[in-house]
Design a protein around this nucleic acid. Structure first.
Lengths: 168, 168
DNA sequence: CTTAGTGCAAAACCTTTGCAGGTTG
DNA sequence: CAACCTGCAAAGGTTTTGCACTAAG
């Protein structure tokens, strides 16, 4: 998904949301939006802020927090939080229904996005009489390949150590 | 699920985990476990602490934090975090596979557990070549009935106000 | 020109840490 | 009796808030 294909509808959506809520269209809000939609990776608020500063665009950190919160309410981003890490956000492509979920490593905390239209469709189709479904987050927890390897190596070492102690 | 049916296997699991890791079986750890398994509702660390104090069992808050972290690593509880609320935990019944997911209200943050064996089985069955699945969390976000009602009422009021202003 | 939005600094909040003393194995 | 665990207080890191100033509608 290239940048403009994602960015333009997002700009339009933000514009309309602000108009509806009678909020102001400030340059800060659109600059932050542009940054958020410039890649499809998850991001942290303070990294987003640093990244803006880095390219010479100054906004205060509190404005970035406030704006991301606004995007969240406008449905332009989704929030994720794992373990005790700071919150991560992910842009929401306009007019595209949820089609992926996340694999989260229980050991190192790394998160990988996985596309799976079938399970996504099935979850999106869940209906409840007293609850109006909007979207979902599915986190599958387990061991990433890196941690599997690391653990295997550690176990092997431990085993060797034990065998040295009682060689019979 | 009555208390002892859940509690006894949990006690055994904790006992074995502590033995494996060569950690100590302190009365605090088992007292906290008992409290955690006394209901199947989600709980916050500080509410758990208060609840223990309330019944006259004194443990420091840091011990409760440390112990809940230990339970998490032992697979005795799962962690959930919504919005900017403090982390919530949920007991894990020993020998029972995941069979429910959560409905989270995007407006008020309330969480409701929903049993759905079919979707749970389907998700548990997901296999990846480089990732070893352990368990999952599915959050379905949307509007709870209470907030739907509240919003309807607010919209009605707003509409009436508008009509008064321009009665034609 | 009115009032929401921004920037800055300070506060708030949840969670972790350091250290002294007590308890488990 | 050595090491681990607990309690307490203090620190740490993220996110929010209060207030004065600026700018959008």
């Amino acid at each position: 998904m290239n940048d403009d294909k994602a960015l333009n509808p997002a700009r339009a959506a933000l514009s309309q949301y602000l108009k509806e809520k009678k909020m102001r269209r400030t340059p800060e809000r659109f600059a932050i939006l542009e940054k958020v939609f410039s890649t499809d990776a998850h991001f942290y608020v303070d990294a987003l802020h640093e990244s803006l500063e880095m390219e010479g665009y100054h906004v205060s950190l509190s404005t970035v927090y406030a704006t991301v919160q606004l995007f969240l309410e406008a449905g332009l981003v989704r929030r994720h939080q794992f373990g005790n890490q700071p919150a991560q956000y992910e842009r929401v492509l306009q007019g595209v229904t949820e089609n992926h979920h996340h694999l989260v490593c229980t050991t190192c905390g790394r998160v990988r996005a996985v596309k799976d239209e079938e399970i996504a469709a099935r979850i999106s189709g869940l209906r409840y009489s007293t609850f109006r479904t909007e979207f979902f987050s599915l986190y599958v927890y387990g061991l990433c390949s890196r941690c599997q390897k690391r653990l295997r190596k550690e176990r092997r070492k431990e085993l060797e150590a034990t065998e040295k102690k009682k060689p019979k």
